[in-house]
Design a protein around this nucleic acid. Structure first.
Length: 592
RNA sequence: GGUCCCGUAGCUCAGUUGGAUAGAGCAACAGCCUUCUAAGCUGUGGGUCGAUGGUUCGAAUCCAUCCGGGAUCACCA
């Protein structure tokens, strides 16, 4: 049993016995002892004084004595103010680590109940290439899915591609008017970038028309609505909805270009999907739901035919769910797809990875299903993440301040190459292996930088900091891993260990303690849908290992029992680092 | 204006969901490589946890008010 769990159980037992009480798990406040005090774990006894009717000091001593008497694993206890510090024996820690090291593979404790969870993420528009904001989305969604899998859940990674609507018509129209048949093949441009180029051209030409109209004395608002280009784009959308063969042909062709481009970016990022949805297929869903809402009197129809839900009692506003002309809005579709997914997969949970600018939308979505009386309305989760800002301010596509995903990835890999070459440690590694190494380092810098921050919070992307290889970074953790691998390679095979009788130094114990927290960390990451918790843990573990590495030699240790113990410690630490980085989508190199 | 989120060291972020003297990284300064990879380790300086009041044995954490920043309130997505 884990040492922490053991202590908790025993503490409950002792308290109940001492005070004829019936406390449970949550009544014992257990924490890790702060480094300035002696001990492994600390029980906060203030809450127990109500039962004992004694001072914190006396209560702590009484509990400490009882524990010391009944739990042989405990070496000693110490009371400081209202805090009971418990120190376990060296053997207890060594035994714990022995059982951990005995199983060769790394594994986590899984959740008591395995659930079926769909994680939707990425969900791009097909009119422009991916940018830095999408990267945060993709990495978060992917990582959360991996975390849930590690907890033993069945996860379906879903990508709902927004492939229809006025935005794609704009790109199409510009290409038809100004493209001269340009294709990814003829231009050498990546498909999504090519389509994005025409989206920009549309915007430019459209603005020219607006300016010209304003010059003739028309108001700006009128000009925006009346410009020929926007009208043409709207006509194109109507043609698309009617299924006009030529329009559909161009639409399909340009979307194929975009998908090829996206796939390239997804592959570089190392993210993947089990299921793709396309809005062109799903945008009509949800009309049944509207009917159901009307018959249940959850929705109301107005004179003009539009359908609304009144959420003023929930502290929100009235919200449109169907236009007066009977066409869908975003909400209509989302209602339909959510229902569809629960029907098709019998999901226990549906997680949407979408920026926090849509908090309101998802609040409404959930409330609607609540009013419908769906049993699963609480199983809808919005993994709401903060925007990525630049030192220069916000990213705005119109002002050209977006950071392109492909460019950024290339820059990170280039920076990794430059810095690695500066170090001069990679002689004797083949060209191919070097390239692979630069890729792993560059991507780890990028991924770790974006994932180490609490998803809920907006974050600042500082390009210079992101390519750093020192300190709280992905490459630092990778570096720690390669130092361990180097030791293990030189040590050869690791067998027949038995280290019940070796000395245990504080640096070794600290590493073991951290290793022992792997399961609670994963559980916490699951609970909060937060890869940042994993990132912080991996960093802490690497840091703690480096402290050990600095003062204790493994290969030069002459006592073979001690050496085997340290080799095991190295091995398990490396495994734990690699496994946690994998949850973040970060690969580890063998040397760097 | 209504609703929601955020405010912690010069900068970027943690803070185990109410516990001990609030921690890391970067930046600055000072040390440590004939020893398993110095992309490392050790140390120093740096704080009115936005402000005020409240809740209690105890508050960065919970409540109220205020200040500052952001998001959102479309027959857009």
């Amino acid at each position: 049993m884990e040492i922490q769990k053991l202590l908790k159980c025993k503490a409950i037992e002792m308290v109940n016995e001492l005070y004829q009480a019936e406390i449970s798990d949550s009544d014992i406040q257990l924490q890790i002892t702060r480094p300035e005090f002696e001990g492994d774990f600390t029980i906060v006894v203030f809450p127990l004084t109500k039962l004992s009717r004694k001072s914190p000091q006396d209560t702590a001593v009484a509990l400490g004595e009882a524990l010391l008497k009944h739990v042989p694993e405990i070496e000693k206890y110490e009371v400081v103010k209202g805090f009971l510090n418990i120190l376990f024996t060296k053997e207890t820690w060594l035994n714990y680590f022995y059982t951990l090291a005995e199983s060769v593979d790394f594994s986590w404790k899984t959740a008591p109940v395995s659930r079926k969870i769909m994680v939707e993420y990425s969900s791009p528009n097909t009119n422009k290439p991916l940018h830095l904001g999408h990267i945060r989305n993709n990495l978060l969604g992917y990582s959360v899915a991996e975390i849930l899998k590690a907890r033993g859940h069945t996860v379906i990674k879903a990508n709902l591609i927004n492939d229809r609507g006025i935005h794609i018509c704009k790109s199409m129209l510009a290409w038809m008017k100004f493209g001269n048949g340009e294709s990814p093949e003829s231009s050498g441009l990546k498909g999504d970038h090519l389509v994005g180029k025409y989206y920009v051209i549309f915007d430019k030409e459209y603005k020219k028309e607006i300016a010209a109209l304003v010059n003739t004395g028309i108001s700006e608002e009128e000009a925006e609505k009346g410009a020929p280009l926007i009208k043409e784009a709207q006509q194109l959308l109507q043609l698309w909805e009617k299924g006009d063969p030529e329009t559909i042909r161009v639409w399909k062709m340009m979307n194929e270009w975009v998908y090829a481009g996206f796939n390239e970016t997804y592959n570089k990022l190392g993210v993947n999907f089990d299921k793709f949805y396309y809005e062109s297929n799903t945008y009509l869903l949800g009309k049944d739901i509207v009917q159901e809402g009307l018959s249940k009197n959850v929705f109301t129809k107005r004179e003009d035919g539009s359908v609304w839900i009144d959420l003023t009692k929930d502290g929100l506003d009235e919200k449109l769910v169907l236009r007066s002309d009977g066409t869908s809005v975003y909400m209509t579709q989302d209602l339909g797809t959510a229902q569809d997914r629960f029907n098709e997969f019998a999901l226990d949970e549906l997680i949407y990875t979408v920026g926090n600018e849509q908090d309101y939308h998802f609040k409404v979505l959930q409330l609607i299903f609540k009013h419908f009386g769906r049993s699963w309305w609480q199983s809808l989760h919005h993994l709401s993440y903060g925007m990525v800002d630049l030192p220069s301010g916000k990213m705005k596509s119109r002002e050209g301040t977006v950071v392109d995903a492909d460019d950024l990835i290339a820059e990170m890999i280039q920076a990794a190459e430059d810095k690695t070459k500066e170090q001069g440690k990679i002689d004797g590694i083949s060209e191919d292996e070097q390239k692979e190494l630069f890729r792993k380092i560059g991507l780890s810098a990028l991924k770790f930088f974006l994932l180490k921050v609490d998803p809920k919070k907006k974050m600042l992307f500082n390009p210079e900091e992101s390519i750093e290889l020192q300190g709280f970074t992905g490459p630092f953790i990778q570096y720690t891993y390669t130092r361990i691998r180097s030791i293990l390679r030189k040590a050869g095979e690791l067998n027949n260990f038995n280290f019940s009788n070796v000395p245990l130094h504080s640096e070794e114990k600290e590493v073991i303690k951290l290793l022992s927290r792997k399961d609670e960390i994963l559980r916490e990451a699951e609970e909060n849908l937060s890869p940042a918790i994993i990132a912080n843990y991996a960093y802490e573990l690497a840091k703690e290992f480096n402290k050990f590495y600095q003062v204790h030699s493994v290969l030069n240790e002459t006592n073979s029992e001690i050496q085997k113990f340290r080799l095991s410690l190295c091995f398990k630490t490396a495994q734990c680092i690699a496994a946690n980085l994998k949850l973040l989508g970060i690969e580890v190199p063998e040397r760097m």
